[in-house]
Design a protein around this nucleic acid. Structure first.
Lengths: 211, 211
DNA sequence: CACTAGGCGGAGCACTTGCTCCGCAAAGTA
DNA sequence: TACTTTGCGGAGCAAGTGCTCCGCCTAGTG
């Protein structure tokens, strides 16, 4: 019969990275992990997810071995950063919306906040393309939920037939424009936003085509 | 003193690919060149310009040497295909516009034609990103000219303050949406288009922000 | 037909990029 | 402090991709 400590060691060998670790992470390991995520977020905002892993290691002042110890696949790191940044971004936009006075201002402020985020974070825009058809999308449902609520609040003011999907696609579409023009004409997307939102108003009664 | 033929040969050695060649291209060379461009156009529409050169060689039934003889850099081939496809695409959209009955229908038909092209040609969409800030842009001026004309024709019907640049950016923005949703919801972009165009109508008088 | 310039094919080079391996360092423990 | 276990660093491997090199072939010519 095995003693408990013996059993624990065997399990630890069998699954060294199981959630119930034998010991807590070492202090330097925690520091390094945080530095990696921070550097990755910075560089992914600038260049998107296709960045060289060596660049992330360099910026975080850490070796390749360390990086891959914490994140066995590049994809793991990318997902971690995306989960974090996408959530923060969506939450900031939601806050902007709930602070608004009326339903229409809520919609406008939501888009304004969200789009200024898109303009400065390449990886977030890219993540739409990845998660749009993903069976287990990361953040889209979170975003959909917010837009669903804004849609419901503004229902009376919205053109008949407009769906939450339309609002999501509008965000993605303008997000691309925002990123596209960010360097040479930083706030040009505001004009398109105003135009599009006016097109969403209830006074337009021409029915929208089936998608 | 040199004989003329001798002189010509020396020149040919000095600049073997000068427009005034010593001889016309061989028949097989012409066939191969066309096959390469055709295959490249096909694969770039599917996958964008980042495609593997070997894939183009394979599809055109030609070796790497042949491909690089005709197009010394991948960039040369990409530009050739893009010039061709972009022009065809822009021309098709222009045709759709001039066949329309009234100025507003012209604008609508132009966008509809252009966007259905965007949806099925990745490289054209990508080329916007490349040529937007390019000092010597390939096709954008051509496109701008058409939109400029449509803008002038529809001036009375358009919201005050709307510029040709707004129309260009709207096209790019919706083009992204069209491509984005092409696989799962092929014509969803039509809804956004209708919404955006309604936002462009003269009845909206709220001034647009400076860009 | 014979000859040759021009064209062809694809193995292979150079570089990038995701990832691994293993000798070494140092955090945590008794 | 001495020792063990966890973590660290970066050279180097493997696969992908742009491009070259060179021996062979053939279209066009006389």
């Amino acid at each position: 019969m095995l003693r408990v400590s013996e059993y624990a060691r065997r399990m630890a060998v069998a699954e060294p990275h199981t959630p119930t670790r034998r010991r807590a992470l070492r202090a330097d390991a925690i520091r390094n992990r945080e530095a990696i995520v921070e550097a990755a977020a910075e560089v992914m905002a600038e260049q998107g997810a296709a960045v060289d892993v060596r660049e992330i290691a360099r910026r975080s002042g850490v070796g390749m071995g360390t990086l891959y110890r914490h994140f066995p696949k590049k994809e793991d790191l990318v997902r971690t950063v995306l989960d974090q940044d996408f959530s923060q971004w969506a939450e900031a936009a939601r806050q902007a919306a709930i602070e608004a006075e009326d339903p229409w201002a809520a919609l406008t402020d939501f888009y304004r906040q969200a789009l200024s985020g898109c303009a400065r974070h390449r990886a977030i825009m890219e993540s739409f393309a990845l998660t749009w058809t993903d069976p287990d999308p990361t953040g889209i449902p979170q975003l959909r939920a917010v837009l669903e609520e804004l849609w419901a609040r503004a229902a009376e003011l919205l053109r008949p037939g407009v769906t939450t999907d339309d609002l999501v696609l509008l965000l993605i579409s303008l997000g691309y424009a925002a990123q596209f023009t960010d360097e040479c004409r930083p706030h040009m997307w505001n004009r398109l936003l105003l135009i599009s939102l006016d097109g969403l108003r209830a006074e337009h009664r021409e029915p929208l085509p089936e998608s």
